[in-house]
Simulated scan of single mutants.
Amino acid sequence: MDVHGLAGLTAIITGGSRGIGLATADAFAAAGSNVVLTSRRLDSALNAADSINARAEPGRGVVVGMEAHATTPGAAELCVQRTLEEFGSVDILVNNAGTNPAYGPLIEQDHLRFAKTFDVNVWAAVNWTSVVVRAWMGEHGGSVVNTASIGGLSVEPDVGVYNATKAALIHLTRQQAFELAPGVRVNAVAPGVVRTRLAELLWSDHEERLRSEIPLGRIGEPEDIAGLVTFLASRAASWITGQTVVIDGGALLGDASADRAPRASTAEHRG
């Protein structure tokens, strides 16, 4: 049974050939949606689509891989046009493409790395949403989900430029939701550390320590985020827009490895 109302819809997922994007494409297909996943390389996109289509369970949607760099001029227009030709609609857009070439302190960054990070992580989401709205959603409605990060809500070493892009994306999510309502809903997810190649520097050499610090005792898996994305795109979230939903295992609550022994109450001290 299609409990979320996703069967027969069409989703475009940028940066969909691996990690969170690939898991999200699989989740939408499992729910009966047709999916177009994009990658900078055509072979990566096709291989990712084939890996999902190979499951071929009853009721699954069809996944198509397309080459489309998130910031290449005209790439969004071409991808949306081909999607409409293939499936007849673009009901869901997941702006998932992201990059982080600007690793290190802010004072060590050059303009090229700074600009590339903002182009991919912020401008691409604005542009792809604009193209999809003009081509389909503006008349027919739809749902957009942006992949942000808890880094956009906090401060930490070495990823200042990346986190600034995610803070901008969180605000732009609210702005897009305001401008595009009521026909188009726009929300964002803000993952913590997830087991992906993009986030590898944040977990690969010290996963055990991270697990001890996260209240729910593990780093995230791409499938964790995919479940939230499909919910936000579904009819179950039909009265949610302009929101950024944190999904971090409780990481923003504080270090779970710290001493959490209960303190004596003021009354006990006085007694």
Rank of each mutant, 00 (worst) to 15 (best):
H69C: 10
A236S: 11
V245N: 07
V144C: 08
L198M: 14
A256V: 07
N187I: 02
L112V: 10
S51K: 10
T24A: 07
G98E: 12
G220F: 08
E85S: 07
P215I: 13
N34P: 02
G151L: 05
G242D: 13
W123A: 12
R55V: 15
A102Q: 01
W239L: 12
S257K: 09
F87S: 01
L22P: 07
T117D: 08
A54L: 13
G254R: 04
T266Y: 10
G250E: 06
I12T: 03
L93A: 00
D50L: 13
L9E: 14
A115K: 15
S89H: 05
A236D: 12
G151P: 11
V94F: 09
T99L: 06
P222Y: 14
D2T: 13
A23C: 13
I150Q: 07
A11N: 05
A164P: 07
L112W: 02
G74M: 06
W128M: 04
I219W: 00
E156T: 04
A97C: 06
R197D: 14
G271I: 04
N34M: 01
D43A: 15
D119L: 09
A25L: 10
Y103C: 00
I214P: 03
I214V: 13
R55E: 15
R82T: 04
N187R: 05
F178V: 14
V120T: 15
S39T: 11
W239R: 07
